[in-house]
């Protein structure tokens, strides 16, 4: 076991991990931050996306030890301390961008990373960017719409709802 230290959602944390412990396991089991989900074992589904030093990563694809000293942001840190949803979260609720909610943490974290680099993405850019995030429930319609809305675009003219 090796000691690891990082900042998660602005708070310094430490833990003991094996060399093979994934960041996703450290967050879920080590820190009890179960908002980060694990939906596959081949790095395909994106349910586990978090930000490490501002970059979206699949936390099932990174070792906990690789995050030593890093700033990690997870879904638990996205809303304001009083519980107010951030713009992307609110858009997901407003536009019914989630059903079972299992893909949702990864979707929200991916969307945040996209909008940081591309504040007004087109529909095609959003769909392309989400190729690493699977959702089985929504058919993606309302996810894409929510992200467009979160970026300030008028979504009232999209295909009939």
């Amino acid at each position: 076991m090796t000691k690891v230290a990082m900042t998660v959602n602005g708070k310094p944390v430490t833990g003991e991990v094996e060399g093979r412990t994934l960041l996703s396991s450290f967050l879920r089991e080590g820190l009890g931050l179960t908002g980060t989900h694990v939906g596959c074992d081949t790095s395909q589904c994106g349910a586990c996306v978090v930000h490490v030093d501002g970059v979206a990563v699949k936390s099932c694809t990174m070792l906990a030890l690789e995050a030593e000293g890093a700033e990690v942001a997870t879904i638990e840190g996205q809303a304001a301390p009083d519980g107010t949803l951030n713009t992307i979260q609110q858009a997901f609720q407003d536009h019914h961008g989630l059903q079972c909610g299992f893909c949702t943490p990864g979707m929200v974290m991916s969307a945040a990373a996209l909008l940081k680099d591309n504040p007004k993405p087109t529909e095609a850019e959003i769909r392309h960017y989400l190729e690493g995030n699977l959702c089985r429930c929504t058919g993606y319609h309302n996810i894409v719409k929510a992200i467009m809305a979160a970026s300030g675009q008028d979504v009232s003219v999209l295909a009939a709802e």
Partner: peptide
């Protein structure tokens, strides 16, 4: 709007 969304959107499901 769905009330269950709040917990799913904040990682508290």
């Amino acid at each position: 709007k769905r009330r269950e969304d709040i917990r799913f959107l904040t990682g508290t499901g």
